[in-house]
Amino acid sequence: MIKFFRKIRLNLLSENKFTKYLFYALGEIILVVIGILIALAINNANQNRIKSNNEQTYLTGLEQEFKTSRLKLQELISINKKNCEGSKKILEYITYNDNNLSEAAFSNLLYNTFSNDISFNPNNSLLNEMINSGNLKTLSNDELRKRLTNWLSTMEDISRQEKELSVQREKVLDMFRTDKTSLRTIFEQTGMYNQIGLPKAENEISNLQLLNSTEFENNILMFIFTGYATEQAHYVPLMRDLESTLILIRKEIKE
């Protein structure tokens, strides 16, 4: 093909058709430029297609991660509510000095309220990979990128609050590590001893005297307030952020 065009140019020059040669040369340059532009356009289209495919892959993965994190957060909120409700029930027995409360009922209430520590463990593996590899820029939505970046810093704030709640829980549990109270009684009354196969004690120590302890009441109150703050000031706003982020992700996913 190159030889064909070169032959035409040589013929034009040999025939002293210089003006036609110039027009032909200009046309040839234009054709070359057009060819380059077409090649660039095709390459850009391919690059954009690859970028779009990568973005959709990331968006689909992020949607699954945030849906799983939402389920975990819902479960955590439910457990925290249960713990707070159990603590309030204990506080009622303290306040109204209910002498009809049995050792078994008190043990079950204590076990159900303080046996579960809470910690939000969201699915962030893909998000961390995107941030560490610099692939977060693959997402075209600026607001979504901002939310995803802030999400990790929010997790640090949530973790600090959960540690404070764990401290208050441990203060309650520490009261059962003295010789005035008995963990054995709680485990026996709740059936944990039989489940594990531990020997039953001959003399059972009652924990009901804790209902007359100001220290126990103070620890229960601190646990209630910290649990309430964890839900209202942290988990509820976090759920709103999670839901709005999911909405943004879904808007970017092409069906």
Rank of each mutant, 00 (worst) to 15 (best):
I30M: 15
E129I: 01
V32F: 15
S78V: 09
I158M: 14
I50T: 14
I90Q: 05
K89M: 12
T57E: 05
R49M: 04
S102A: 04
L31K: 01
E55Q: 15
N46D: 12
D174I: 00
S119W: 03
K17I: 01
I38D: 02
P237G: 04
K88Y: 10
P199L: 06
K3P: 00
E164S: 07
F5P: 00
Y93Q: 01
V167T: 12
I8N: 01
I90H: 03
N11S: 15
C84R: 09
Y58L: 07
A105I: 08
D157G: 07
A45N: 15
T113I: 07
E215W: 11
N212V: 03
L246K: 09
R184E: 08
G35Q: 13
A104P: 01
Q232S: 10
N218G: 09
T138C: 09
K171T: 06
D174M: 01
Q64A: 04
N203D: 06
T113S: 14
L198R: 05
I36A: 14
Q161G: 00
N218H: 07
F176N: 07
L183R: 13
R160Q: 11
Q168A: 11
K51T: 09
I2H: 15
E28K: 07
R9K: 13
N16D: 13
K254V: 02
T214D: 14
Y235V: 01
L127T: 01
S107L: 06
S69N: 01
L221N: 05
N11Q: 15
A105D: 13
L183I: 10
Q195W: 10
Y93L: 02
G35D: 11
S52Y: 09
F5N: 11
N207W: 15
I50S: 13
S140Y: 09
D179R: 12
E252F: 03
K251F: 11
Y58G: 01
Q168F: 02
P122I: 00
D157C: 04
Y21L: 10
E215V: 06
L12R: 11
L210E: 09
F223P: 00
E217M: 10
K251V: 03
E143V: 04
L71W: 13
T178L: 04
Y58N: 04
N135V: 02
T230L: 13
R169Q: 07
I50H: 14
S133G: 00
N53Y: 12
T57M: 04
L62A: 03
R160N: 06
N128M: 02
P199T: 08
N124S: 09
S102H: 06
E243A: 05
T230R: 05
A229S: 11
N123A: 06
E188T: 15
L109W: 08
L71P: 00
K89I: 10
T190Y: 11
